[in-house]
Design a protein around this nucleic acid. Structure first.
Lengths: 359, 359
DNA sequence: TTGTACGCGTTATCAA
DNA sequence: TTGATAACGCGTACAA
């Protein structure tokens, strides 16, 4: 009986509530907003009336006075991709805990579409804008805007802007340190598209740690594409040139899956003979791999949360600038671990060591 | 020079434009909205002033008059999952072509969180609501609401509501017809979680076609989980019980990947000996498979578009009800094709037919 | 052709 | 403690 059949289509207004409670709109407003200047009995009557009409205040009307709409615009360039989604979740998470809502637009990597959406969002008087890129490389910023803007995942190339990005160098470092701790010393790198700055950053992290340890990289990093197929091909190349390799650092989980498949099919044991690491910690790939894949989690949700936090701060006047780097973390799984011989010596790959399949 | 340094932080209002153009707000409004009751020269002056102040009308204020906010609320239950995203894209697509914006909320499968978000969205005076489920089974509807609601992917179990879903029976039919056309006659089914209605629907589609063709299913459908691991295990079960199977229909691309891996590793050629199909056409899995995977594309974006279209119609008063079923389509790839012997006769699996790897 | 005045739903100020 | 009123930004009758 909460909503009788005759419910009006138009949502109840404050006047409706006031009329039903037999008070003025001012008193109704005060009652509902917890103001102290109203008698308890009156407030109860108003609250009851509001309940009865299932009244919910019109946030839009409120905006006219406050100057804040309580919304932020989120423009993504990669809605179908897997990277922007966690960022978006983090932002929605941060916003949802407060009382701001997220207006979502997909610009699909098109600058014109982005411009169009930004204008539409400004027309809706969003309090701020969050721009989520499709790939982690820096991008040209939007022009001067009447509201604060934060760039997530793909930073603005203007250091005066606010940006939040993942830490790819650290990702490389964590992987290298982990492999050293596992006793690996002949470590090769197989990664993706060389036009991605992130690919180079991750390699730089690996290289720095290995150089410091006096171990060095085994061979030169192989750049290709972010695909399983390239992972298989690259693994073959690495094994041909460096048959004694004992670890392969992969630039993505996809590549790592390809590397794993090639290793298994050519009779190498993972991790006994060769350890393998991925990047992105995309669980759908990492957990279904054989063995399960050690990977780097970039904490994209945290990127989204921090970007949102930065934006909320800026909206309240505490504007900052520069690029904030969110640390990543290593997620160790079965694809890394101690070597079969426990040391750093040379060991020829096993011959027909077919892995057990289907019990 | 579009935005001089002294740009006021507060966005320009119609009064600002009117003042700068030396006219009244009414005239400014008419000029900007293309009304005919204004002199060309005056209009030009207003437009110029608006341009100069980079004026964009406050859509929220407009709402107070029109009664429409030009927004819809989109509540998803599976933001991290892969199914709701395409639906969301389709909805955003349909909305973006018009002038409505999408307010996004993630309820994460929690009914309370859903209720909370719905109330918040109603407070923002959304013109309609779209609820995207996490899995395709019917769900309990929201209560009576002052705005139209459409359920996407997961339908409401009340036939009086509007819902848009994928066609799982058709998906099964398409796969079965395709395999028959490829000359397969001993067709087994391996699928996922038996608590999913979709799993049963797909099986029903396969069964119907095979029964009609007088071929019948080979063995009983195997239910398990939507994982690669189950795909591998299930393939082993099928081969043990029915060594002469010549096609395995998989309930998802994940399962199909597992099936493919097991077949390859036990020396079966795909598709020469056994054809394999997936479901979902998740390209990241289907295109990286060896061989590339024939799959069913459920056209989730179309689900989103139709749901949005239905919602827009309802907002304009053309309310409908019932569940709309979006047809899916088969995407044939290398994992299906003619049998090695071109016929339906029995053929024992090859022995050590190791597939070529790494050239 | 242009301007004045009102109302949309809400909050805040001030007077009663 | 309560109520009348102004204001937010815009569109639109209606008057000039």
């Amino acid at each position: 009986m909460t909503t009788p059949a005759g419910t009006p289509r138009r949502p109840a207004t404050l006047s409706d509530v006031a009329r039903l409670a037999g008070v003025s709109v001012a008193t109704a407003s005060k009652s509902l907003n917890g103001r102290q200047q109203v008698r308890a009995e009156t407030r109860a009557r108003v609250l009851s009336a509001a309940e009865q009409l299932s009244f919910s205040p019109n946030v839009l009307a409120r905006h006219l006075l406050s100057g804040r709409s309580g919304t932020i615009g989120l423009v993504t360039h990669d809605l179908e991709g897997r990277f922007s989604i966690p960022v978006l979740m983090g932002a929605e998470d941060a916003a949802g805990t407060g009382k701001t809502s997220v207006l979502l637009c997909d610009a699909r990597g098109d600058a014109l579409r982005e411009q169009y959406h930004v204008q539409a969002l400004l027309g809706r008087r969003v309090d701020g804008l969050m721009i989520v890129g499709a790939r982690p490389d820096p991008r040209a910023p939007l022009g001067e805007l009447p509201v604060p803007v934060v760039y997530a995942y793909a930073p603005s190339d203007d250091p005066a802007d606010m940006s939040v990005v993942t830490d790819n160098v650290l990702g490389g470092r964590l992987v290298a340190e982990h492999l050293l701790a596992c006793g690996r010393t002949r470590i090769a790198v197989v990664t993706g598209d060389a036009t991605y700055g992130a690919a180079h950053d991750r390699v730089a992290g690996v290289r720095a740690v290995l150089d410091d340890a006096g171990v060095g990289l085994t061979g030169e990093p192989l750049y290709g594409s972010w695909s399983e197929e390239w992972g298989r091909a690259a693994a073959a190349l690495v094994l041909a040139q460096h048959p004694d390799v004992d670890a392969i650092v992969s630039g993505s989980d996809h590549i790592a899956r390809g590397v794993l498949d090639h290793l298994r099919e050519t009779g190498r044991r993972v991790p006994e003979d060769v350890a393998v690491t991925g990047h992105d910690n995309w669980e759908i790939l990492a957990l279904n791999a054989r063995p399960q894949l050690t990977s780097v989690d970039m904490d994209l949700e945290e990127v989204g949360r921090r970007a949102a936090a930065l934006l909320f701060d800026a909206i309240e006047g505490r504007v900052r600038s520069g690029t904030e780097v969110v640390p990543c973390r290593l997620v160790p799984r079965a694809s890394t671990g101690p070597r079969a011989d426990g040391g750093g010596g040379h060991r020829s790959p096993p011959g027909q060591d077919v892995p057990s399949v289907s019990g």
